[in-house]
Design a protein around this nucleic acid. Structure first.
Lengths: 307, 307
DNA sequence: GCTTCGGATTAGTTTTGCTAATCCAGCTTA
DNA sequence: TAAGCTGGATTAGCAAAACTAATCCGAAGC
């Protein structure tokens, strides 16, 4: 399957010069100098060992060989251009695969996607819930939202939202047999653990409480399940603000105390650098940043004042 | 008419890698290293802002975009390769335009072309008789045979045959009223002049004759007409050996004396350098050199001994 | 644990593409 | 007739693309 092909770039120059019957006009069209076209045609004629043009004064004439070659060259270049345009067009609509943690998907993203759909009715989001870091080389993912420090190698990470950590519980627990007035009261309660990057040790440190056994209590790798357990009254969950914001607003959960563990960790929009130039990825990125902005405004107007 | 096209060379790499689903095999096919393919694919994916392959361990998978792109890219490259092959093939057969002086055409080349035709029945020689130096840039000439010093700019000139100059006349003039025993006898005869690069002055010098008026007598720009006039008994022609060889052999002309004017001038096969790689030009060049060789052998065996 | 496989990356070299400036030959205009 | 214009060719140099050898990486196989 060995094709004998001349320098392909020179074919661009040839086709343009042949159409215009002018090196100068071809140069204009291709945004290069006349000399560049002259060089390319010369090289092509030498490669082919035959003239493609007759150089008259102030005129260019196609040789028989040039005339014979032109239709096919034009055809091939058109084919390539159309195929390339079709690729770009398919990148402006159709499906967009977004990968993110199950918790963010369930607790934050899903209830907002309707607004993306309304804004971009020709883009279908395929939400891929995956706790693992996305390997873009091996996975058909267009863009990911990850939680972390943002320093993943080989990708571009744009910081979307910060995250605060604090305890939450079901509202009725406030009226239960065991008090919940100070952080120290937590020693009498079941602690629900998020195994995904956060732990109670750091929070107790920040709260200035010691002597509480943080090794006890149910552990969840899926933060959404952790939150569900808290909502069901299974115990006190150390939760991330973004994931519980809606439950707090709906009164399904209440926040305990004012001690907040600010994290170095945040949510990032992540993809290989050149993906960000793709229309669909860009549309999604722009939209989600506006959602994060909107969320931040709503959160400020509902600042914690209780406890 | 502005097409948006990716780097075309990279499309070669893509198509080969996609067919083989292997960068290594694509590299083998294109006679480059695996790294070159890797670079090209990477560059193309970045230019397109979308992945064309999934890199698995020991395996390569085409993405949807890659799958969509491949048929058109293959099609275009095939189109170009076929068109190029057709160009080469048309250069192996069909017409071959040969430009030369009218005299050489009439007196030497025409009667030999039959042998070229027998050797290459698929090549039709178009013999263009033209006394001017060929301008290959403006004229649709594949190869020329010129008479001169061989130092024409911008072309390759291969020395075909040397040329000797001497007087000839019709045989019956030897028995005429005016003697023709010594070069000095020419003062009583009509001198026929070839206006194409040679003149009687140089010959008389070589013959050691003085006092003959070389400005008198008919002049011909076409050497073939000069020879025709001599054959008709119009006078004594200063002729070039190649052009009168057949007439001498046939007895239509006889050579006078042994004084020969060797010339710096010779016959050359002339064309732009890269034309010599073309099959048709090469076939003609090779053939005409064998004819010149053959002619040289025949001429030696018929060395001048009379007078 | 070592080897193999196959693509990715690094650092450097070679080739191609391109530029600005100038040349060349003819044509047009004043 | 001289000057200016037109448009391709050439020169010399720089930039970008293409390619190389060597090495790295991650997984699969033995």
């Amino acid at each position: 399957m060995s094709r004998r092909l001349p320098p392909l770039n020179a074919l661009r120059a040839f086709e343009a010069a042949a159409r215009h019957l002018s090196f100068t006009k071809a140069a204009e069209e291709l945004h290069v100098t006349q000399a560049a076209i002259s060089h390319q045609i010369k090289g092509l004629e030498e490669w082919l060992a035959m003239p493609l043009f007759r150089r008259m004064n102030r005129a260019l004439i196609l040789t028989e060989a040039g005339q014979a070659y032109l239709p096919s060259v034009k055809d091939a270049l058109d084919t390539l251009a159309h195929a390339t345009e079709r690729l770009f067009r398919r990148d402006q609509a159709g499906s967009l695969t977004v990968s993110t943690m199950p918790s963010l998907a369930a607790k934050w993203l899903v209830m907002r996607l309707g607004r993306f759909q309304a804004l971009h009715p020709d883009i279908d989001v395929l939400l891929q819930s995956n706790p693992q870091i996305t390997d873009f080389a091996q996975q058909d993912v267009d863009v990911a939202i990850r939680f972390g420090l943002g320093r993943w190698p080989g990708v571009r990470a744009e910081r979307l939202m910060k995250e605060d950590i604090f305890p939450v519980c079901a509202p009725y627990m406030l009226k239960g047999p065991k008090p919940l007035r100070t952080p120290d009261d937590l020693r009498h309660h079941t602690l629900l653990h998020d195994d995904y990057m956060i732990n109670w040790t750091n929070w107790f440190e920040a709260a200035g409480v010691t002597g509480i056994d943080v090794t006890r209590g149910p552990r969840y790798t899926d933060s959404a399940l952790l939150i569900q357990a808290a909502t069901d009254g299974q115990g006190i969950a150390l939760a991330r603000e973004v994931l519980v914001a809606d439950d707090l607003a709906a009164g399904r959960l209440v926040r305990l105390f004012t001690v907040t563990l600010p994290g170095d960790y945040a949510y990032y929009v992540v993809a290989p650098h050149h993906y960000f130039a793709r229309p669909k990825v860009k549309a999604f990125r722009d939209w989600i940043f506006s959602e994060a902005e909107r969320y931040a405004v709503e959160t400020i107007s509902q600042s914690p004042t209780k406890m």
